[in-house]
C-alpha cells in the first residue's frame, strides 16, 4: 500500500462531502485522515485527505474520478511530502 495526499476544492453544496466520501468507499480507497476547512471564498471549502492505495495503483485514476463530481471544483495529488523533504 502507498500513501497519497490529495487536495480538493469543494463546492459548499448539500451532499458534496458525502459524494466524495462515498467515492472513496465504492472505489476501495483507505482514508487515513480527512480535513475540511472554510476558505476566504464563502462558496467553496478546501479538503485535504490522505489515502492509501494498493501498490501499483496510480493516484491519477482517483484524481480523474474525483474530477467527475459536479461539486469538486479542483483536485490535485500532492507529491509525497517525504520525497519533498529529501529533495529540499
Amino acid at each position: 500500500m502507498n500513501r497519497h495526499e490529495l487536495s480538493l476544492v469543494l463546492r459548499n453544496a448539500p451532499g458534496a462531502l458525502a459524494r466524495v466520501v462515498v467515492l472513496f468507499s465504492s472505489r476501495g480507497v483507505d482514508v487515513e485522515s480527512l480535513s475540511l476547512d472554510p476558505t476566504e471564498r464563502g462558496d467553496v471549502s478546501r479538503m485535504d485527505v490522505v489515502v492509501w492505495l494498493p501498490a501499483g495503483r496510480n493516484p491519477d485514476q482517483l484524481v480523474k474520478q474525483l474530477s467527475r463530481l459536479v461539486d469538486v471544483k479542483s483536485v490535485v495529488a500532492v507529491a509525497d511530502p517525504a520525497r519533498n523533504q529529501i529533495g529540499a
Binding site: P14, G15, A18, L23, S25, S26, R68, V70, D71
Partner: peptide, 16 residues
C-alpha cells in the same frame, strides 16, 4: 434518496 443514489448517479439535487 439523495444519499442512497450517491454512487449510482452523476449528480443529485435536493431543491430547498
Amino acid at each position: 434518496i439523495r444519499s442512497i443514489s450517491l454512487p449510482i448517479t452523476k449528480h443529485a439535487f435536493q431543491v430547498t
